[in-house]
Simulated assay, not measured.
Amino acid sequence: PADRLTVGQTGDAFDPLMSGHFLVKQRMQMYNSPYRGVLDCIRCVWQQEGALAFYRSYTTQLTMNIPFQTLHFMTYEYLQELLNPQRHYNPSSHMVSGALAGAIAAATTTPLDVCKTLLNTQESLPLNSISQSGRHITGLGHAFRTVYRLGGLPAYFKGVQARVIYQMPSTAISWSVYEFFKYVITKHQHEKRRIQRD
């Protein structure tokens, strides 16, 4: 249904702003991160790699959003058909459907997330594996080839458990809140129409 598109599309609107945020967050989370803090990370990246470094993974983020949101919505709708065919307000079915939808979408798009992380962190091991010294990993195709060269197919699913564990409560809460407010607003509108008829 068209009314459900609003739940996942808000992330797409913030992607340009969040691209730099992801870069800083992931570089701060790296083992032995060389940065003293957020501002130090921003300054170093700006000076050493330029402003475009903050958007190196932007197209990968957009590419990941399409299959993630598609699987997310399709799975949620499918599970609602199974668990809640009458489409009544049912918090437990919304939470279960939302959590499973998020888990499936997250697991399936993990290879793109691995590539996005590599683009953001520019870790030394992958960079050293590139023949030309001082070169950066610059795009999705380059990141995919580098990940495969370093770890084969299993490397595309590193961190899949953490990604799924993160997404499940997030999407469960999102769908539950959405369905709650939809129920409250719809109920209010029905009551208002009933009063007007009476």
Results as ranks from 00 to 15, higher is better:
D198I: 14
I137S: 00
T59G: 04
G134W: 01
S93F: 03
L127S: 02
H190A: 10
L5R: 06
W46S: 15
R43W: 13
R193N: 11
Q29E: 06
I165W: 10
A99C: 12
Y148I: 05
A172R: 00
Q132A: 06
H94Y: 07
E77M: 14
Y58A: 15
Q80S: 07
D113N: 10
V7P: 00
R194N: 15
Q161R: 09
T186F: 10
T110S: 15
A107H: 03
V45S: 04
V24N: 01
H88C: 05
R36N: 09
Q189E: 14
I42A: 03
F54N: 00
V7Y: 00
Q26G: 01
H142V: 08
I42V: 12
V7A: 13
S92W: 14
Y178S: 05
T186W: 11
E123I: 01
P67I: 05
R43F: 10
Y178H: 08
T110F: 04
T59F: 15
Y183R: 07
I165R: 06
Q189I: 13
P85C: 11
Y166D: 14
F181G: 12
D15A: 10
K182N: 15
D40G: 14
N84M: 02
D40H: 14
P85Q: 11
I195W: 09
Y35N: 08
S97P: 12
A51G: 08
V38C: 06
A143I: 11
R56Q: 10
T75H: 08
T59K: 10
E81Q: 14
I42L: 09
Y35H: 10
M64G: 09
Q47Y: 01
H136N: 08
Y35E: 02
N120S: 03
N32W: 10
P1V: 06
F73I: 08
S176C: 11
F68I: 03
S92V: 15
I185A: 07
D198Y: 11
P85W: 15
H72I: 04
T186E: 15
L127Y: 01
V147Y: 00
M95T: 13
S131P: 07
L112M: 13
A155V: 03
H188I: 11
S93M: 02
S57E: 08
C115V: 05
S133G: 07
H190N: 08
R87Q: 14
A51P: 00
Q29W: 10
V160P: 00
G11F: 08
R4E: 06
I195F: 11
Y78M: 13
D12S: 08
Q196M: 15
E123K: 05
A53V: 03
L127C: 03
E49R: 11
K158P: 00
Y183K: 08
T121H: 01
E49H: 07
S133A: 09
H21F: 13
T6N: 04
P34F: 05
L23H: 00
L127P: 00
V114M: 10
T117P: 00
A101Y: 04
A53G: 12
Q29K: 06
F68W: 14
A2G: 15
A13Y: 14
P16H: 03
G139R: 06
C44D: 12
Q86E: 12
G50R: 03
